[in-house]
Computed example of a mutant assay.
Amino acid sequence: MDDFMIPLSILDLSPIVQGKTVSDSFAQSTLMAQQAEARAYKRFWLAEHHGMSNVASSSPAVLLSHIGAATTSIRLGSGGVMLPNHSPLIIAEQFGTLAELYPNRIDLGLGRAPGTDMQTARALRRNMNAAVDQYPDDVRELQHFLGKPEENQKVIAVPGRNTHVPIWMLGSSLYSAQVAAEFGLPYSFASHFAPDQLIQALTVYRRNYRPSDTNPVAHTMAGVMAVVADTDEEAAYLFTSVQQQFINLRRGNNVPFAKPVESMDALWSVSEKHMINHTLQYAFVGSKESVKFKMKSFVEKTGIDELIVSFPIYDAEKRLKSLALMAEVRDELGAA
């Protein structure tokens, strides 16, 4: 594949913005998926988060079913399901159901983090320690439920069995890279919020990759945030929403996604500014020309096979425009 004929996908958190409802968020996610399909994005994934006032995608499988009915061809999936929050059988049944409803369109991305605070995680998991420690075993069990049942197998996933839903390993650490390599699964790194180990994790994954029947070669994807607008100045203005979100996360303020502001100076301390700018260092923020340079540089640096982007933008129309402009950036880089 030419370096810049790179598949482009969307990671959506179904953001709940100030002054809007959860229903509004779901309607906007559906519209985003439809526009992504029209613009030849490859995948539309939803992330599992819990108890967050700015994220509506706590039940990815349920929302994916709704979005599947409103689209026809784009791949749909989780980015990801936090497997320690669930039994593998439940996830096999949920994504087996999706695979039967929308054949050859469903991906199952798996993560190990709780996707929430520790108190909410306890309410989800009940047994905090065992759930994390047995993560690799749970992945194997999930693969087993989605595959062909063995003779006299007592526990089967219906729906689920024989669907062979493609599984992706997601992560922000070297641990996830090692597990993905050992299991022979495609790997997506969360560079949109964990930039420090990006290159090392991709290297560990590729170096230790064990080919599998379904994935004979290593396959990598990375996540970035993207805010593309007509000018660099407008994009920087729109990006203040996610900068405020990271301040709120750091301070423990559980509030809806904020409106953009003209200046961040009065809202963050010097240390917060440095921390957030470091965390978001790979974000593609700017005009088409600026983002084109950033995307080209990022793909060259990482050698990834796919790119998945989130659009952390308050205004619904600006979010859709950013989606369209990002597709144009991809097409222009490919043509070049």
Rank of each mutant, 00 (worst) to 15 (best):
L307G: 06
S290N: 12
P159R: 11
F26K: 02
E141C: 13
Q94A: 11
L108G: 01
G147Y: 03
R161I: 05
S73Q: 11
H144E: 08
Q134N: 12
E289F: 08
D331S: 08
S65V: 10
D117M: 14
G223E: 14
V139A: 10
E306Y: 05
T21H: 07
P149Y: 14
L76M: 09
L267C: 01
E328A: 15
L11N: 00
V309L: 10
R206I: 01
L238T: 00
M264Q: 04
G19F: 08
K20C: 05
S212V: 04
K42H: 13
L174F: 04
S25V: 00
L202V: 13
L320G: 06
S241I: 02
A218H: 00
Q243S: 10
R112F: 01
Q119W: 14
R161Q: 10
F183R: 06
F145N: 06
A229E: 13
N104F: 15
A201Y: 04
P84L: 10
Q35W: 15
V17Y: 00
D24S: 10
A123K: 13
K296D: 15
S23G: 02
G96D: 02
A327V: 00
L325H: 05
D137R: 00
D24F: 04
A181F: 02
L333H: 09
K296P: 10
V165R: 05
E317Q: 14
V155W: 07
S87P: 03
A36F: 04
S14K: 03
W168E: 01
R43I: 05
L76E: 11
D196G: 09
S191K: 12
S58P: 04
S73T: 14
N127S: 11
M32L: 15
V155K: 12
G160N: 10
Q245T: 11
T21G: 01
V81F: 13
A40Y: 06
D230H: 13
L198H: 04
S172K: 12
Q94G: 03
E306G: 07
G115R: 00
H86L: 02
G96Y: 03
L89C: 08
S59V: 12
R112C: 00
H86T: 12
I106N: 11
L267F: 13
Y175H: 14
N152Q: 12
A283P: 06
A180C: 01
L110P: 01
D3A: 10
T116F: 11
G160A: 09
L323C: 09
R251K: 15
V158L: 13
R43Y: 02
T302V: 09
N54G: 03
T279Q: 13
P211H: 07
A236G: 03
Q94F: 00
Q119P: 07
V329M: 05
L198T: 11
N152Y: 12
L146T: 07
S87N: 10
L46E: 03
V217Q: 10
I199E: 14
K296Y: 15
V22S: 12
V17I: 07
I313Q: 03
R39V: 01
L98C: 06
N215Q: 14
Q178W: 04
L31H: 11
L76S: 02
R319P: 00
Y237A: 06
M264H: 03
G96F: 00
R250A: 15
P84T: 05
G80I: 08
T21F: 01
G96S: 08
V62M: 07
L146R: 00
S287L: 09
G334L: 00
